[in-house]
Nucleic acid binder design. Structure first.
Lengths: 185, 185, 185, 185
DNA sequence: CCTTAATCGAGACGGTACGTCGTGTCTTTAT
DNA sequence: ATAAAGACACGACGTACCGTCTCGATTAAGG
């Protein structure tokens, strides 16, 4: 009897675990995701999971990161501020569509520091985009109040967390055209 | 030996149950609140709880409503838009301070329709406040884009849900002065 | 959907549990008997077992008692001391054959007070048997040293615990004829 | 920094392992002795243990042998049968005191062939002692029934295995004076 | 002397069972 | 009829060991 291939270890095993967690998340949703279920799907023991992640929230966050890849979002540079900001929001919306609001709420309820993983980077991206617009003379100054700078990101998050309907391009356009651009123009 | 006084029923019992739920929430937090714990604290059985509320989320929402009383917020009327909006935000912040972000996240993760109960009313209040300001000639028009109208409420919620630090008056002032007033003035 | 009959409780449930434990014992032996296995066989949860017995040793002892019935052995009275003592030993051997040495060793290794349950009664029975023999004039006195009185029982136990072969009538006869009777005759 | 002295191997390592097993046995008792615990105490890996002994029973038996040294008991020769037999029993009791009944029960529950290692030799010793007594004319014949010959050893084992109290000289004396000597005299 | 094979020390892996906690349902007894 | 109390069936928790496997480091032995 050959006994499979060889025993999984290290990074290869870890990738399998995260894939299993992701598959479980899609299959049953965050609320009913269990460490036992993930372990069973990955054909391993629970200890292997607990050795790496202390609870399901950490596991799921790692799985999301593994799935969505590096969060070092490329900064868009379309030539107009409006398009740049829209592109930033679309990227955020895309990621949200992969994840789903229930998972986000579950994570926020159970984990500390979900924020940096999923939302934190937007601010830096926006700062760059705005700076470029000021250089181009599109807007008078890049020196916006902190709250104005992060406004598009904040409103996007707000929609993700509290609106039960999926995000539409319409919504993103409103955020940019009705709120953000009037404040910086 | 008779068991204390008489056996509780109806509304009196229900009030006791909600008080117990509230006490349990304060004692252990939402994450560790259990139906068993509430039943034990109320010195009754779980069935008495399940007969009334299907799960802990419903129970806790009921307890919050019972505690915070009617959410029919009075509309402030201080004479200036700035103060009116600040007052609306302060009222929201006050309620949040009673409840705590963990409970909110827990409820959002487990329950449907948390929104109307805790956030929904602000829009109507803001509409009234803005209308009065327009009447006074303080702002050119009361016909704001929907997203602008709810902006203060949305940003407040965003802070409550995602900022780990308690809300300060400073934050509320920024929302009004840096974002809302420039858009309506 | 019929949903079985009604939910088991109390004594009826307990009998089922002990039957399940006995069946499991026969199926896999004491060494591989687990609380989970018994619970699964009884189609219930582990808590139901733990509510009644703190560990598998207690459970198995209870199951044995339930199975072998009241240990209030009838005192044989055949008319001769030899036959009476042999009958006592045969009864002990019969019980042992039902149980098996591995179970006995497992219990002795894990439980306190296995003794009274399975061996303790023999002394009283032997005392009666010997007293009757003395009354009949078969032996000079019933006033034997304690160690002589319990000798048949002790040697039987010794065989059960340390001889890997099953007990034979031959062995019982040797205990009586070569050891016990010469000492009391 | 080099890792301490040199790496252990062969017989030196084996001795360390058995010492560790013995120490673990004294520290936690047989029931809670684990291969992991012994390996940790010996500062080595589990494989090193499994390479030599298939399970904890084998390991512990080896440790006992290593500790109690050669079991080739010297045959006592005091000049009287009574003293000789007592000496045999005292030697057995001494060994038992080192080991403890829980370990014996645990081993009997898990291992095959515990017997020869710890009890088997007594018979030969007793045979010699009895033969000498017959030669001296102390007893009529050395040709005792098998069961009588091993009686002292059997009763000693019985006490060890089933009496929860430690063995006393009083008990040994009773075995010899009340049971054995009357049968051979 | 230097390569080679074996073993050591360490710990991860796949797996079973542990004993506990909480869920939501059901049953009994008493008011 | 419902309250109070608690048992029941169930699922998952996080932990402990099992026995196996893998890895790199060390050591003994052979060419």
């Amino acid at each position: 009897m050959p006994g499979e291939t060889t025993r999984r270890r290290g990074a290869a095993l870890e990738a399998d675990l995260l894939d299993a967690a992701w598959a479980e998340l899609e299959a049953v949703g965050y609320a009913r995701l269990t460490m036992e279920g993930v372990a069973a799907r990955a054909k391993t023991g629970k200890q292997v999971l607990y050795r790496r992640w202390g609870n399901r929230a950490e596991l799921v966050i790692a799985a999301l990161r593994h799935r969505t890849g590096s969060i070092a979002d490329r900064v868009p540079d379309t030539g107009t501020l409006r398009e740049d900001v829209l592109e930033v929001l679309r990227a955020g919306a895309r990621r949200q569509r992969q994840i789903g609001p229930d998972t986000v709420h579950g994570l926020l309820a159970e984990a500390r520091d979900v924020d940096p993983a999923f939302f934190g980077i937007m601010r830096d991206v926006l700062r760059t985009v705005v700076a470029r617009a000021a250089e181009r003379g599109e807007i008078p100054t890049a020196d916006l109040p902190r709250r104005v700078l992060t406004l598009p990101a904040d409103l996007l998050r707000h929609e993700i967390l509290l609106s039960r309907q999926p995000l539409t391009d319409q919504t993103l356009a409103e955020i940019v055209d009705d709120v953000f651009l009037p404040l910086v123009g």
